[in-house]
Write a protein that binds this DNA or RNA. Structure first.
Length: 313
DNA sequence: ATGGTTTTTACTGCGTC
DNA sequence: GACGCGGTAAAAACCAT
């Protein structure tokens, strides 16, 4: 018994943006979570890492005015770039020098403005963390949008009191790690260890807690996110993809998946699905596509079928 | 460091085309 | 015989403690 396809995580993209599927000229839908665009009919993945088609800048208040005036709000600055800045020059708007009285007044204003900006301890630590995220992000060559999400994650972590007695840098690193995974850019934890100032263990702990606390999905750890790609690589029909996802669903519900490599589970599911659908695909094919050994494909696929048997009884 | 898992490598026999 | 498949044994890699 197959369950209906979950449609809430895909959305149709307007035809003006796409030319339809190159294979079968079916309509192309976008997978929201992964950013992949795939054909609705044949499952061919048209483009991965699609550019977000949404509006680039939002309006700053609820008004309709979207005039592009001023800098965009960014989560990469601790105050989102919205605080007041006072120039350092001692001149007025038209460039005239100021009187000494006005100059002293301006000095005071600057002082207080700076104090206000970094007033609270949380602001200061956030600033620190965002600095670290920037530093590590550029050291690892991660794209801007990843650093941006890392900033958001860190901010949320801070609001959820994850920091308590933890090195800020550990949480910052964890946030960045999490953001890169969200963006499906698999970087190993050890790469982060090399640029971070804290040890692997602390980062791991922080990562666990952050993702638990914030309920973040881990797209890399989710076997289903691999299915589409493998199925596409192997030129498999869409219903096979569905069967594979269904098998994974059952296995996850029975907790048969913990500890197993997600990619391996996905590979097993794809093979099992192919077999159930009488598709001519070999274990070696799947093993190749998924970069998992043949034996592992075998073990996973048999487990999945066993889980399905138990589930239906 | 250690112990428990999973994954990989290597080698096997069986059936089919 | 070549190929796909299922199994075992042992080493390697991984992860949590």
């Amino acid at each position: 018994m197959l369950r209906e396809r979950h449609d809430q995580d895909t959305r149709r993209v307007s035809t003006s943006e796409t030319d339809g599927c190159p294979e079968c000229s079916g309509s192309v839908i976008e997978h929201e979570a992964s950013g992949e665009r795939a054909c609705e009919d044949c499952g061919l993945v048209v483009a991965e890492d699609a550019i977000d088609p949404g509006p680039e800048w939002r309006s700053f208040d609820s008004s309709e005015d979207r005039s592009r005036v001023g800098a965009p709000v960014t989560n990469r600055l601790h105050d989102k770039g919205l605080s007041t800045n006072i120039g350092w020059k001692n001149e007025d708007a038209s460039g005239r020098q100021l009187s000494s009285r006005q100059r002293r007044k301006l000095e005071r204003l600057r002082t207080w403005n700076e104090r206000y900006k970094h007033r609270t301890a949380t602001d200061r630590s956030l600033k620190h963390a965002l600095g670290e995220i920037e530093r590590m992000g550029s050291a690892l060559g991660l794209p801007d949008h990843v650093r941006e999400t890392a900033g958001v994650i860190h901010r949320r972590a801070q609001e959820a009191d994850v920091l308590l007695g933890r090195a800020i840098e550990a949480v910052a690193t964890a946030s960045l790690y999490s953001a890169t995974r969200q963006a499906r850019l698999p970087r190993s934890l050890s790469e982060f260890t090399q640029v971070s100032r804290v040890g692997k263990l602390r980062i791991q702990r922080a990562y666990r807690q952050v993702s638990n606390e914030l309920g973040l999905e881990d797209p890399i750890g989710d076997p289903k996110s691999y299915v589409r790609r493998y199925a596409s690589d192997l030129d498999l029909a869409e219903d096979i993809e569905h069967i594979a996802n269904d098998l994974l669903q059952v296995a996850v519900e029975q907790n048969r998946h913990s500890g197993k490599r997600p990619a391996a589970l996905a590979a097993g599911a794809v093979y099992a699905a192919g077999r159930l659908a009488n598709e001519a695909i070999t274990q070696a094919d799947v093993s190749d596509a998924a970069d998992v050994s043949i034996l592992t494909v075998r073990n996973r696929y048999m487990e999945l079928l066993a889980a399905k048997e138990e589930g239906t009884e």
